[in-house]
Design a protein around this nucleic acid. Structure first.
Lengths: 194, 194
DNA sequence: CTTTTTTCTTGACCTGCTTCATTTTTACTG
DNA sequence: CAGTAAAAATGAAGCAGGTCAAGAAAAAAG
């Protein structure tokens, strides 16, 4: 069952007794999501945090008709409009399924209860947030320091398994460049190899 | 005393009894730092997380001779090379005092002890990390969506109190542009006003 | 306050990346 | 599996922002 997968993930960060494990996963509910279906939309508050059991997602903002990707998420990643979720105010992002997917989602209030109920659960969410913050720090610094081409190379190196699953225009907007420019970078690279 | 200031800050997020308060601040030690002094340097592991009691700091990376600013911190902000601190591996950033400053710093191992000892302390650090992550998400999206000029305007709007205290070349590198270009933006704006 | 260092400004020129328009390729859908 | 929609590639032209070099202003040091 999919909750086993979530538990395995959680236990890789904090040890849980069987009883605690049961308590942790209880408030999560499984949701099936079809490709191109939205799970978060601007102006609606993001009421759930979701663990990706299967599939792929993309969160992005639209500004002046342009899409700008904040994150991708595949198996064993989490998805939410984090600002909307933790402050429980209206979302600014779209989150859409890139494939037919399965999520395990928890309501905001239920997550608060979990964190309150058990020190270990609190620790788990603390670790998630810290790792997320550290990740974004690395991303910001890297983006500040490097050219479009270097950012693409770095992505390939660090997330080879994402490359096959996210459309190129979405990757371009994640890396802060246009689709056209990413296409040219790839083309240049292909020619160098031959 | 400066620990009062830290406590006031912590208590704005989690309620603490007097006993807990004492326990929390005990492992922090006060450090005086002179302007231009470094508190973190690449290749040395960042052993402390520090709360700014007074003064201002800047964390930045150097790449191809160019400086790129990740963060500024003034009173009631925290400073560290977060990746170095939480994983206890060598730092990649410089952190330097922009003014004569006072820090309250805690050793990594002592922080772990605090988080283990009391659920509330764990909650506090979880909230810090979550707020930090939400902040960086907003920053990344904003940077992806906006021009150099808009990023500068946004900074003025959101951090008016930083403007007076950080050098312009540092602000430029935080906003992802050159000193020269920021100078031109400011100049253009001044002319529009007259 | 005078000297030195650091920061900020300004001008001329340059380029990495964007924009727009069109075509080709790939993926869905009935 | 034909037809249509979505995604990727390609070319030409433009611009936001960078680079380099030199001077002015401000701050720090003596």
């Amino acid at each position: 069952m999919s909750k086993e997968q979530l538990l395995q993930y959680v236990r890789s960060f904090v040890p849980l007794t069987d009883e605690e494990a049961e308590q942790f996963v209880a408030p999560f509910e499984e949701v099936q999501v079809k490709k191109r279906q939205f799970v978060v939309q601007p102006n609606f508050t993001n009421k759930h945090r979701a663990f990706v059991v299967k599939g792929a997602f993309r969160s992005y903002a639209v500004h002046d008709g342009q899409e700008h990707t904040l994150q991708f998420a595949i198996e064993n990643w989490w998805v939410s409009d984090f600002n909307s979720y933790i402050y429980q105010h209206p979302a600014t992002l779209f989150i859409v399924a890139l494939e037919d997917s399965v999520l395990l989602q928890i309501e905001h209030a239920k997550e608060l209860e979990l964190k309150k109920a058990n020190h270990k659960f609190e620790t788990f969410f603390r670790i998630m947030a810290e790792k997320g913050l550290a990740f974004e720090h690395r991303r910001i610094i890297f983006n500040l320091c490097h050219s479009a081409e270097a950012r693409y190379e770095n992505f390939i190196l660090n997330f080879p398994n994402f490359i096959q699953r996210v459309p190129q225009y979405a990757l371009a907007s994640y890396l802060g460049m246009t689709t056209e420019f990413l296409s040219r970078i790839r083309n240049k690279k292909a020619h160098r190899r031959s």
